[in-house]
């Protein structure tokens, strides 16, 4: 049971992030929501990496021990890096929107419609 907690936490994080994207009006909060989804997915990936065996990339590994593939860790690192880029880009969009519209409210920042 206790091993399932990280999965539950990941799903809750993703759910919270989706909630923020759906119901929060502030554009910055939407960006935060996406960061939450990302953390949830990263947590999920890392949890998948928890297997029986010796931790990966271990210099003085005991001989004969079976090492876990470090794939999830590698994936998570890549995903974090991508996440930084997307968050930075989205925040810069928010900045430009605020500069021209003088608002961060999603209901008001919608000149494109119909």
């Amino acid at each position: 049971m206790i091993y399932n907690f990280p999965f539950i936490a990941a799903v809750i994080l993703i759910g919270l992030g989706v909630y923020a994207c759906m119901f929060k009006r502030n554009l910055i909060k939407i960006v935060i929501g996406i960061s939450l989804i990302e953390s949830g997915v990263n947590l999920f990936l890392i949890t998948l990496g928890y297997r029986k065996g010796v931790a990966p990339i271990y210099t003085n590994a005991p001989s004969g021990a079976s090492m876990v593939l470090p794939t999830p860790q590698a994936l998570t690192l890549t995903s974090i890096v991508i996440g930084v880029a997307t968050t930075a880009l989205m925040l810069s969009f928010v900045m430009t929107i605020y500069k021209h519209y003088k608002t961060l409210d999603a209901r008001k920042a919608r000149r494109l419609k119909g």
């Binding site: 994207c21 119901f23 929060k24 999603a106 919608r110 494109l112 419609k113």
Partner: peptide, 11 residues
């Protein structure tokens, strides 16, 4: 339906 509101898009 085409509100242009980002929340609705995600919705």
């Amino acid at each position: 339906i085409h509100t242009g509101d980002i929340n609705d898009y995600v919705y």
